[in-house]
């Protein structure tokens, strides 16, 4: 099976596994979308929506919530420095996350997350992290690495982890 088909069938399964709430219900509610798009070269507007959902959830209880735009810009810049092979893999991953059923899944969760908690997205990340298929583990590892690295790259979050930053030096 081709990598892309493989991803697609798995995304379908993930949606089914959530159960109870139909994708269509989410779709009908999804009038609100992330609108503060920033200028990116690799990430599309749809990718930005996906990241705007994932960033706060991956960040967890950081006292200062990560700035979504800054984090997205960091992710974009990092991807642009990767080899074309890796960029192509990430393109597939983001396309799957940001279109079709997966888009509905994530958009729906995003809509309801303030009220119902972020549990659906957390479950989705947990599922990929623990998945028996290494391709999904790889997707989790790669996506999480980009996001978490783009968050902790910023001095905003250093005080919360007891990192004072580099010594000031006089050159």
């Amino acid at each position: 099976m081709k990598r892309r088909q493989f991803f697609k069938s798995l995304m379908g399964t993930s949606v089914l596994m959530l159960g109870g709430v139909s994708a269509f219900q989410w779709y009908q509610q999804s009038s609100i979308e992330y609108s503060n798009h920033v200028k990116t070269e690799f990430l599309t507007a749809d990718d930005q929506v996906v990241l705007s959902v994932l960033i706060p959830i991956i960040a967890g209880d950081l006292p200062q919530a990560p700035n979504i735009e800054t984090t997205i810009l960091n992710v974009d810049e990092a991807i642009l420095q990767l080899p074309l092979r890796t960029q192509a893999e990430l393109r597939e991953l983001f396309d799957l996350l940001s279109t079709g059923v997966s888009r509905l899944l994530l958009a729906g969760v995003w809509l309801n997350w303030q009220k119902a908690g972020s549990q659906h997205v957390i479950d989705f990340l947990d599922d990929w992290r623990e998945h028996s298929l290494s391709l999904l583990q790889q997707a989790y590892i790669g996506l999480r690495l980009l996001v978490v690295g783009s968050i902790y790259a910023e001095p905003d979050h250093w005080a919360a982890i007891g990192y004072p930053g580099p010594y000031p030096i006089n050159q």
Binding site: I58, A59, G60, R129, V148, H157, G162
Partner: peptide, 26 residues
Amino acid sequence: LHPLLASTLLRHHGEKHFQLMQNFAF
């Protein structure tokens, strides 16, 4: 140990990840 690289090596997300990061200096 520096924060960006350490944050990527602690392969969790959400609450669990931040709990691990909180003790970074220790």
